[in-house]
């Protein structure tokens, strides 16, 4: 025997799926802007392990047909394009995020998301389980500890992106904010690393969704999950 269990409210599904392409546009247009002054790297002292980004990243030398002078895509020489997209879609990103926060607050959904005292221990256990280092099994709950931390962090990161973004967009009128973030140059550095953070989040998120399977993924689209009848309700 089975039953259908409501998992994700309609509003949250919309916020989630709107945010996906919007964040993609923000990252893509951000790269077009970043290209104009691509100074960040991973390294220590004068030794560079990785530079953001190698030339091949901006315009891979060959396309699928193997033509050298016809790159698949180009991310260079497009500062104006990048800014035009960034300063339009920042509004969508902001409003969608704001509505999400308001909705989760009013609807009580935040209870599933905001970490509690037990969360951190549980998150660690989940990670150990996922790495096959422990027999511990995550609890049957809407979001386990690791998810709670991840989904709450990504909202804080969104707020961080807005703050650092404003600090570099209006560094004179919002000088207090820019100064608080360590100045124009440092605020830009944080803005960039938050983006790398989203890319990391995306990678882990997609891997986990694939691992969790179709029933879980389908719930983010239909709202419902099929569960065994004897399982306790969420």
């Amino acid at each position: 025997m089975k039953r259908l269990e409501k998992k994700h409210p309609l509003a949250i599904r919309w916020f989630h799926w709107i945010n996906f392409p919007v964040l993609a546009i923000m990252i893509w247009s951000g790269l077009l802007i970043y290209w104009a002054n691509d100074i960040y790297r991973i390294g220590f002292g004068s030794h560079t392990l990785f530079k953001f980004f190698p030339d091949a990243f901006y315009h891979p030398a060959t396309n699928l047909a193997g033509k050298i002078d016809a790159p698949l895509y180009t991310l260079d020489q497009k500062l104006a394009t990048g800014m035009a997209w960034h300063f339009l879609f920042m509004w969508v990103f902001f409003l969608n995020g704001l509505l999400y926060v308001i909705y989760t607050t009013i609807s009580g959904e935040w209870r599933y998301l905001v970490p509690t005292r037990r969360t951190f221990k549980e998150a660690l256990q989940v990670v150990m389980h996922d790495l096959h280092l422990s027999k511990y099994h995550p609890p049957r709950r809407k979001f386990n500890g690791a998810q709670q931390i991840a989904y709450t962090s990504v909202i804080l990161m969104g707020i961080g992106s807005l703050a650092t973004g404003l600090a570099i967009y209006k560094p004179v009128q919002l000088a207090w904010l820019t100064t608080l973030l360590g100045g124009y140059t440092l605020a830009r550095f944080f803005h960039f690393w938050l983006t790398i953070g989203y890319v990391g989040f995306f990678g882990i998120h997609v891997a986990q969704v694939i691992k969790a399977g179709w029933n879980n993924f389908r719930a983010m689209i239909t709202g419902y999950e099929v569960v065994a009848a004897e399982e306790k309700p969420l």
Binding site: M1, K2, R3, L4, K6, I221, T222, A229
Partner: peptide
């Protein structure tokens, strides 16, 4: 209200398919 009563496997399958079709 947020969960259906216990269903046979076929009925559960039928219902989720209908919801999936609409949503997708």
């Amino acid at each position: 209200a947020s969960q259906s009563e216990a269903l046979t496997d076929e009925e559960a399958e039928r219902q989720i398919r209908r919801k999936s079709r609409r949503s997708f």
